[in-house]
């Protein structure tokens, strides 16, 4: 093989390999149902990461960092870390979390 075609040939090989990997990954994840029974019986929506931080496994709200948890008035699920989004901006929190929507209704 002439040396000038090595780079183009490798480009084709790498792209084909990547596409194969992506196709394999797609099919693997689409049929991915391992531990379904276990997950059903335990019912935790999160995975086993982040357990140095006490709120990790608590459904939903404590995913949002409890950075001011121990500070009086620092509602753990209202205050978020700068790393992640602010629950205030999420419609779900405003509209669907009981006790969260403090909107006054005049009437």
């Amino acid at each position: 093989m002439r040396r000038i075609v090595v780079l183009p040939a490798l480009a084709i090989v790498f792209t084909a390999a990547l596409m194969s990997l992506a196709a394999y990954s797609e099919s693997q994840w689409s049929n991915h149902e391992y531990d379904k029974n276990l997950r059903e019986i335990l019912g935790f929506p999160s995975i086993a990461i982040g357990t140095n931080y006490e709120g990790t496994r608590n459904p939903l709200l404590e995913v949002f960092v409890r950075s001011l948890y121990d500070i009086p008035g620092g509602y753990d699920y209202i205050v978020s870390s700068s790393f992640i989004d602010t629950p205030m901006r999420l419609v779900d929190f405003r509209e669907r979390t009981p006790g969260f929507n403090f909107t006054a209704v005049k009437g």
Binding site: H32, R39, F44, P45
Partner: peptide, 12 residues
């Protein structure tokens, strides 16, 4: 991570 969360939530 998103797919794992989806799988866990599906089974929740």
């Amino acid at each position: 991570l998103e797919r794992e969360a989806e799988l866990s939530v599906d089974a929740a």
